[in-house]
């Protein structure tokens, strides 16, 4: 069995929106500890990993199950979440469906038909990073939106004291600079200078669910995938994004 209740359907909508911008489908692996999932986007440029520990739920009961979900359909349903709706996710094993229930003044129940994605689990690689930047989510998001005016990719540079996002266009440039003294920065860790370039469209998709008050952790290396982590309403999201390199 699997039945889980979340305090805010509207907050979980942000998680589903973010997943749906990068992925077509995902296989939720549920057990008594919580919900986990990981998948790469169809072009294998980005990976998303989701971890919702059971403590994030108001009620939680689960045996081991794999629940394959078509994300566009799930996103459309979650778009119907209203401000005070609670969200119940419930596996109907007989009909092979996930019931998505909005609970407020009454219950509104959608039944989402499941995909067979068993065996399609993605292993998340352990990459080593020396530079870690912890930054306020809105500052990062605004800098990426600024860069989007100039180019379709950015160079991220980190040193022990500074983090920069640069975009170069044919005519115009953009640079966002954050020092460890700046309000936007919680911390900058690292002993060396590193830089990697990334596609901006993916980056903007990855920060889609981020809003004011969210804290984002960035792990950077030299021509290495970017690792990004943040939490939304107790749901831990982790992304990997492959870099662009000069040939």
């Amino acid at each position: 069995m699997f039945k889980a209740k979340l305090e805010s359907a509207k907050e979980f909508k942000k998680v589903v929106d973010t997943m749906a911008t990068l992925l077509d489908e995902i296989c939720l692996q549920v057990n008594e500890e919580g919900v986990r999932a990981a998948a790469m986007d169809p072009s294998h440029v980005a990976l998303l990993s989701l971890n919702i520990p059971r403590i994030a739920f108001e009620d939680y009961q689960a045996d081991e199950h794999e629940i394959g979900i078509e994300l566009e359909a799930f996103k459309k349903i979650m778009n119907r979440a209203k401000a005070k709706d609670k969200l119940i996710l419930e596996l109907d094993e007989e009909r092979n469906r996930l019931n998505v229930i909005f609970e407020n003044q009454g219950k509104r129940k959608f039944s989402l038909s499941l995909l067979d994605l068993s065996g399609a689990t993605t292993k998340v690689p352990e990459l080593e990073y020396h530079n870690v930047i912890t930054i306020k989510g809105d500052a990062l998001k605004e800098a990426l939106k600024d860069a989007d005016l100039i180019s379709d990719h950015v160079i991220m540079r980190a040193s022990p004291y500074e983090f920069k996002i640069e975009a170069k266009g044919d005519l115009n440039d953009f640079t966002a600079e954050f020092s460890s003294e700046d309000d936007a920065i919680i911390s900058i860790e690292g002993e060396e200078e590193v830089k990697s370039a990334f596609n901006l469209e993916y980056l903007l998709d990855m920060v889609k669910g981020v809003s004011k008050g969210d804290i984002v952790k960035l792990y950077l290396g030299n021509d290495m995938p970017l690792k990004m982590e943040y939490s939304l309403a107790g749901c831990e999201l982790m992304f990997l994004l492959a870099p662009r390199i000069e040939e």
């Binding site: 790469m40 072009s43 294998h44 440029v45 980005a46 990976l47 292993k123 690689p125 990459l127 990719h153 370039a197 596609n199 290495m224 995938p225 990997l240 492959a242 870099p243 662009r244 390199i245 000069e246 040939e247």
Partner: peptide, 11 residues
């Protein structure tokens, strides 16, 4: 010339 790598390059 810039090239987009995939994550398969790192696994």
């Amino acid at each position: 010339q810039e090239k987009q790598l995939t994550l398969d390059n790192f696994f």
